[in-house]
């Protein structure tokens, strides 16, 4: 691993200083702070639709980061797929499940302290590990690695078989989504089966 890292990364010592960042790095850090902030707001806000919109900000910021890392095509795909379809889907889902507009007091579950602990612990652990492992690695951004032309070439020469398999997977997911969401005959007034289901809220209210 170390030989691989040494062979791949630049060994120029002057370039490794964290105290004299390049322009790219500064932009990356600023956008990164934006992405992180949007992500944090997205997972903590009480307004469900706002969460989706903050997700748009985070994902869009990530697209900029991809651009900064010279992964041009990936960045546009990110914008198209995530911003264009996934978030729209999420918004539709929110609307279809009648998510309340405005502040919702029940956006977070009772599992929050545990979630905070686990998230903090994983962040601490991984940051420690990553910093310890890659603090002296340097990315050379000189060559354009992710232009559309280049991407098309390797995708349709080396990766064509996984690509086709993925298209089959997408088709299967499409069919599955249709089957799942198709309303069965007269299911508009489908009721939960008696005795099988329990809603904690109603139960607590009964008590």
């Amino acid at each position: 691993m170390s030989t691989l890292l040494a062979a791949a990364g630049s060994l120029e010592p002057a370039a490794r200083s964290y105290l004299s960042p390049t322009g790219q790095e500064i932009v990356f850090l600023l956008v990164g702070a934006l992405v992180l902030g949007a992500a944090v707001v997205s997972v903590t806000t009480r307004q469900l639709v706002h969460a989706a919109l903050w997700l748009v900000v985070a994902l869009g910021g990530l697209a900029v980061e991809f651009l900064l890392l010279t992964a041009e095509f990936v960045a546009w795909v990110q914008v198209l797929v995530y911003l264009g379809s996934v978030v729209v889907l999420v918004l539709f889902g929110l609307m279809l499940t009648r998510a309340p507009i405005g502040r919702s007091p029940e956006a977070d579950s009772g599992n929050r302290p545990a979630a905070l602990a686990v998230g903090a612990a994983s962040a601490a652990t991984l940051v420690t590990l990553v910093v310890d492992a890659f603090r002296s690695s340097w990315i050379d951004l000189s060559g354009a690695a992710g232009t559309t032309r280049l991407t098309g070439e390797y995708l349709f020469s080396h990766w064509v078989l996984p690509f086709e398999a993925l298209s089959v997977l997408l088709l299967a997911a499409l069919v599955g989504a249709i089957v799942l969401s198709r309303a069965k005959g007269g299911s508009a007034d489908a009721k939960p089966r008696a005795g099988k289901l329990r809603t904690g809220l109603t139960k607590q209210k009964e008590r």
């Binding site: 579950s109 599992n111 545990a114 979630a115 602990a117 686990v118 612990a121 994983s122 652990t125």
Partner: peptide, 14 residues
């Protein structure tokens, strides 16, 4: 509650 299970799982992984 799936979230509880998942918390325990991830905590264990960490």
């Amino acid at each position: 509650n799936a979230q509880g299970y998942l918390s325990a799982l991830l905590a264990g992984a960490v």
